[in-house]
Amino acid sequence: MELPPYATLGQRVWHYTFLVICGLIFFFLIAPILTIIPLSFNAENFFTFTPGMLAFDPDAYSLRHYEDFFTNSQWQAAMWNSIKIAPVATLISVALGTLAAVGLSQSHVPFRRAIMAILISPMIVPLIISAAGMYFFYSRLGMQGTYWGVVLAHAALGIPFVIITVTATLVGFDRSLTRASANLGAGPVRTFFKVQMPLILPGVISGGLFAFITSFDEVVVVLFVGSAGQKTLPWQMFIGLREQISPTILAVATILVILSIMLLTGVELLRRRSEKMRGLSPG
């Protein structure tokens, strides 16, 4: 993107205009998320910058919305529900998903394309349709409005992510390692846990992180499949946004942004580690 020294004036103008346009688009991408962080420290119950905040008056900032989040029983109940649902759903997705991904990566799998299409389908079907179907079907089974109903629904939604990341990791897997392990006397189970698993672990964990964020972030399905007893954090935020909007939402949002930055870093580190282990990238 360097401008050659012989560029004409028109080219220069266009080059810088292009950079400004890109800058504006980046601003569009990131500004909304960054704006809510200072707003969450607002001392008033407003959703905009007060004159005091613009003048950097320390009194205009406060932690009261965070305090509200950590003391309000509704928000706390929602937080605990999220903490109870997401890890269990993730565990189911990862356990079943990894096993199936290992199966799918074998050289001779009958109906591979059809199976893959079915396993990926929860990611393709619009959430509202999944939610509607699950609501109808789970009410027939009496699982609508139960903890396990929500957990199983979320596990199903997280599975495509595990399948995709783990099969991608297995593409570069050196099969002679399992043969060597079998040659040395290890059974298939031992080979899986001692040889294959450590090598594909980065892929498994990043698939797990995707599955976790899917469940933790999910609101449409839980809205229909769950009942008041399974009210999760996104659900509570959804209610808050629709009915009684309070700046506590911004405090929660800020906490979630920090959480997603942590997850993003985690996935990125795992990706690099996995590529290094498979020798795909030098650095």
């Binding site: 909304p32 998320i33 809510i36 964020i213 933790f216 972030d217 609101v219 996104p234 935020m237 959804f238 946004l241 939402i249 911004l250 949002a253 979630l256 942004v257 997603s260 930055i261 997850l263 993003l264």
Partner: peptide
């Protein structure tokens, strides 16, 4: 990676 609800809020 940011929560959908966060972006919508």
């Amino acid at each position: 990676w940011t929560s959908l609800l966060v972006r919508t809020s």
